[in-house]
Simulated scan of single mutants.
Amino acid sequence: MQRTALTSYAHLPRAHHDRHVLTSTVDVFGVAHWLLAERAPQPGGDVPPFDALVVSVHPDGHVERTELNAVRARWPHLDRLPDAGFVVAASRARRHKDANQVQVFDALGRETSSFSVGDAIEHLLVDETGHIWVGHFDENPAGIRRWSATGRLAWTSDDAAIPGLFDCYALNVSGTAAWACPYTDFPLVEIHPDRPVRVWSNRIRGAHAVAAHGDRVAFYGGYGKEQDRLAHAELTETSVKPTDAGLLTLPDGSAPGRRRAIGRGSRIYVQAEPFTAWGVFDLNS
């Protein structure tokens, strides 16, 4: 089976390896971010607010550090806003009052607002205009929604006629648009907030990240032994036509094991435990 190795993309500077990685992401402009705490969250009970550090590594290697004050999320999602502020959100809303689930911080790390986007966040990705796309897993029927950075609901999948949208397995946000591949039917969906949603039927099941470029798409992940699968396909008028499949490996050729994966346009970024480095696959390379 064909093996494709990720290209090394960004590394957390070694000076910060003594801190615990709460989460990490790559934003819409290609900057990698790590949200770090002094120690790992302890199981059970509420978490008192704590200060956290965001380390940002730009594609040219430039490093920024931003201290965030009074973070409340135990298992957070993170992304950066175009004004250099940050969004931190708790994946579960049950431990938080509605107004506290999502925290918005300015470029100096001060909280400027908070609001709720609903329980069971699977993906949280910010687009080029600063809107926040949220894909939910199956404990919340909200599906996919787009929010302003002040908590105004700007788009919802409720009336989008997306078949079998029970769990947003894969979400890719690039520019101001999104691609999704949701459970249970796994259609490929292209979402532009100002025009009707496009839907292609799809036989590739279980992917947790998707990349798109022109009429070509790639799906990463799957069930069981297909967790490292990289499947290529072409778009017809109404369906996804698989062309070939192989394995996506770390840059050294090994399997990722526990990993995070993020889709951004033509790129899929993958980060394996201990979550200090990002690799990238680019469908356009």
Rank of each mutant, 00 (worst) to 15 (best):
R3S: 14
R3A: 15
L6K: 05
L6R: 06
T7D: 08
S8F: 04
A10Y: 00
H11I: 09
L12T: 08
D18I: 05
D18R: 15
R19P: 01
R19Y: 10
V21M: 08
V21D: 03
L22W: 07
A32S: 00
A37F: 06
A40K: 13
A40H: 04
D46G: 11
D51N: 10
V55A: 04
P59W: 00
E64I: 07
E64T: 15
E67M: 15
L78W: 01
L81M: 08
D83W: 09
D83K: 10
A84Y: 10
G85F: 10
F86G: 04
V87Q: 02
V88W: 06
R92M: 10
H96T: 03
Q101L: 06
V104E: 00
A107K: 13
L108R: 15
L108Y: 14
G109C: 04
G109Y: 06
V117T: 11
G118R: 00
A120Q: 11
I121K: 06
I121C: 03
H123S: 02
T129H: 13
G135F: 04
F137R: 10
D138R: 14
A142M: 07
G143Y: 09
R146S: 03
A149E: 05
T150V: 12
T150R: 14
A154M: 11
W155P: 06
T156P: 01
A161P: 11
I162W: 09
G164V: 04
L165Q: 06
C168D: 03
Y169C: 12
N172K: 12
T176N: 13
T176K: 14
W179F: 14
F186E: 03
F186I: 09
H192N: 11
P193T: 02
D194W: 04
P196R: 11
V199K: 11
H208W: 13
A209M: 09
V210R: 09
A212H: 14
H213P: 07
G214N: 05
D215Y: 01
R216M: 11
A218H: 02
Y220M: 12
G222L: 08
G222T: 05
K225S: 15
D228Y: 09
E234F: 02
E234N: 07
T238L: 00
P242I: 01
A245V: 02
L247I: 15
L248D: 01
G253P: 00
P256T: 03
R259F: 08
R260E: 10
A261V: 11
R264I: 14
R264N: 13
S266A: 14
R267C: 14
A272N: 04
T276V: 13
G279W: 03
V280Q: 02
S285N: 12
